[in-house]
Design a binder for these strands. Structure first.
Lengths: 244, 244
DNA sequence: CGGCTCATTGACTCAGCTCAATATCGGTGG
DNA sequence: CCACCGATATTGAGCTGAGTCAATGAGCCG
């Protein structure tokens, strides 16, 4: 809640922001003003930054940790809309489309984020159109990504979707070890299922089949890719309408 | 191809653009410059405005007609990413994310569109950040819409998805007649299928079942909703995990 | 009248969901 | 240290929605 600069000084925060492509072109003094207009906070793993339907008065810029953005339908069925890491802004749809948050954001790991009031940020964009263009690029990229996922869910089988999700996660959040690539994010089977539009049972079955094949090694909320190439092959291999 | 002003004078084009929310705040003389930098063209129904993978050097602003934006995976399976009508800009992802078109745009009806070179448009945005904010809103809204569709494809059955698609289309492109609401867009069963992530056969079966129930009346590339409320009920009715 | 695209319908199959039971992990408190 | 608990994961059995394959029908254009 309270505005603060414990440990992290304002000038340090400015540097942090300028490290992200989004704010690269912004003059430090204006960034400082933006930071002063906002606050920063921390969340323990599992806590929600905001909930679907909450009124949105600003945006968050994630500084540390990972957040999953989830959308639920009327019956409570959930889908993961996005996995966000450091440097990514959250709450953009609510901010720009001027509506309540369309999804909930939950901390996957302990998180730190800067909150900036919407009005201040909008004015900032008006004064710094280069940043607005960066923002447009970001939204365009997200749009592209979601379109790709929509296509995948529409035309691919679960097995292949899961393989793709793993490969992608490994690329973004994988740590190389001598055993293989380990996912740094503690994802449950259910969360994985929500990422590829299926059920936890199906995910469990597939993962165990792959484990038997030696492709992965499983743990509680833990996945190690021992033969990433096998998954990539499965993910990319093109199939004709019928097992060609 | 050629720059032209046949029939439609430049000042008239300016007025057309200013009628769209996107350009409302822009000064007419700058709009005129933008228009002069670009060209406009017409496409007969079925023709492509651009193809997935084509290098993008600008954006289109659709002035007349309807366009479907399709994305295909490696095996040729397609999904409709978007249905665009007058006033909507096309090619935004390519423009802002600075990459080739991620999808193809096909004229569903005869179309007219203004083409604006990317560099000119970017400069325009830098000089008119209010328009950039409008653009951000537009992208945010599209993002929201795609997220909703992703959720639907992930958790809803085809029947319900199809009902939703029809209801939505009826709202955007329906004409009220004494028989019911008629979709003004000539959509084939297959295109409908691509809109809800299924196959034409399934769409055909569902539509015919609904026709037998008296909810719709079908024709070749033609759909009339005779009892929209029935479809709305089907679309919105919330279901527990198991037929509750 | 052919020849095209688009649509309908049936028969069959199976991927993946549901339902249900059990197992395993990790933490917590006695 | 062990007993217990909740959260997470595995696995089986059965069912069914929707995809696939295949054939026919119906509307439209030259």
């Amino acid at each position: 809640m309270g505005r603060g600069k414990p440990g992290t000084g304002e000038s340090q925060m400015v540097e942090t922001l300028r490290a992200y492509p989004l704010f690269r072109e912004a003059p430090p003094e204006d960034l400082a003003a933006l930071i002063r207009a906002g606050t920063w906070r921390m969340w323990p793993a599992g806590r929600f930054l905001f909930l679907e339907g909450d009124p949105a008065e600003g945006l968050y810029v994630l500084l540390e940790g990972y957040v999953k953005v989830i959308q639920a339908d009327a019956a409570g069925q959930e889908a993961v809309a996005q996995m966000a890491g450091p440097g990514e802004p959250l709450g953009l749809i609510a901010l720009f489309a001027d509506q309540p948050y369309p999804a909930s954001a939950q901390a996957m790991t302990p998180c730190r984020a800067l909150w900036i009031p919407g009005t201040a940020f909008r004015e900032f964009l008006l004064r710094h159109p280069e940043v607005a263009l960066r923002m447009l690029r970001l939204l365009a990229e997200r749009l592209h990504e979601v379109h790709r996922r929509l296509l995948e869910v529409s035309v691919l089988r679960v097995e292949r979707r899961l393989a793709r999700v793993l490969v992608r996660l490994a690329g973004r959040l994988g740590r190389r070890t001598e055993e293989g690539i380990e996912l740094m994010l503690p994802l449950s089977r259910e969360e994985l299922a929500e990422l590829c539009g299926t059920r936890l049972h199906t995910v469990s079955r597939l993962l165990n089949r792959w484990q038997r094949a030696g492709w992965v090694r499983l743990g509680r909320r833990r996945i190690l890719l021992r033969q990433p190439h096998a998954l990539v092959a499965l993910a990319e291999e093109l199939e004709g309408p019928r097992g060609l």
